Simulated assay, not measured.
Amino acid sequence: MRNFSLFVIIGILICLCIFPVDSKANEQKYDDDDLPISFEIEILPWEVAKDILPKYKKFIVIDVETGKQYQVQRRSGSRHADVQPLTTKDTKIMKEVYDGKWSWKRRAIIVKVGDQFIAASMHGMPHGGGALQNGFPGHFCIHFYGSTTHRSGKMDKLHHLMILKAGGKEEEYLHTVDPYEMIEFFVTGLKYQDPHLLKVTIAENKTSTKLKKMAKSFTYFRITSMSFLPVEDLEGQLVLEVPVEVKYHTDKSGKVTKNISMILIKNSVMDRWRIDSEHFFNQIQGKN
């Protein structure tokens, strides 16, 4: 009996050597098309997105930075989507995303509709009319690639940047931005005290942290005039100084109008423009 068992074991071992078992033979293989949800974030033009999100369509908004999500409904809008939070609970979550204060600040979002994830941008300021019982006094706007504003009929540059951020194309886009547009993004970062915009527009150095702290003190900041050179004349340059007049307000300084210069730098001709944060900080502090 023991000899029989020995022969069986030897036979099994021989079979395993001749016909090795494929450990993956019983595993289910899934192609992307087999998955119930597509995890690809699409950057779709407004002309396509508006048909995916017709009037009264309900969908989910996912905030890129916080991961918080809430339901909304498209109510109207021809050049972009005019949207309302679906319920009081959704309004509460949306307000949490904006740190408890409604704001025109643009935020990168992902719109989830069915099994699609679409890159988009929104602001958080109630305006106009609203029809839902949701505690939200009006509606807000969601922009997709190629969306324009109702008033100007032009694409909003910051919405465009946020859409590309949501779609993972922000850095690629920033390599195409000229220095004057980079200054616009930087000033918007100061205006809205937006740490992400400041991070992607400045050259990190020993004063970067101080600058980000300073930004929190501004209750108002804008450029009232700026000197321009033709963009084509900047080819090959690694440093550019741009004279500007700025107006800003802090609780300590009150209203200030000042002529300063913005210095932008590249590390190489293949690099993109960044604001010299140390020079800017010293200019505002009156050290230069």
Rank of each mutant, 00 (worst) to 15 (best):
F19E: 07
K95T: 11
V111W: 08
G67L: 11
S38I: 05
I43V: 15
K57L: 02
T91Y: 00
W102Q: 08
S5E: 13
R106M: 02
S121Y: 03
S23D: 06
K89F: 10
L132K: 00
V97L: 05
D63Q: 08
K24G: 09
M122C: 13
V72R: 01
I43N: 08
W104R: 00
K55H: 10
A120F: 08
P20W: 00
P36R: 12
I110E: 04
Y98G: 07
A49Y: 02
A131C: 00
C141V: 02
L53W: 07
E42I: 02
S121A: 15
E42M: 07
S76F: 09
P36W: 11
I41E: 05
E27Y: 13
I14Y: 09
T87V: 10
V8L: 15
S38L: 12
V21F: 12
I14G: 04
K58F: 00
K101S: 14
E65H: 11
D22T: 05
P137V: 08
T88P: 04
A49D: 08
P36C: 04
S103C: 08
I52W: 05
V97S: 04
G135L: 06
V64H: 09
V97E: 04
G114W: 00
F59G: 02
P85R: 08
I52M: 14
I37S: 11
V72T: 10
Q73D: 06
I10R: 08
I93H: 00
A49V: 14
G138C: 02
Q116E: 14
I18A: 13
Y30A: 12
A119L: 06
A81K: 04
V111M: 05
K50A: 04
Y98I: 03
S78Y: 11
I52S: 10
I52G: 03
K92P: 05
T91C: 04
C17M: 13
K68W: 13
E40V: 14
A131D: 14
D22E: 14
D32S: 15
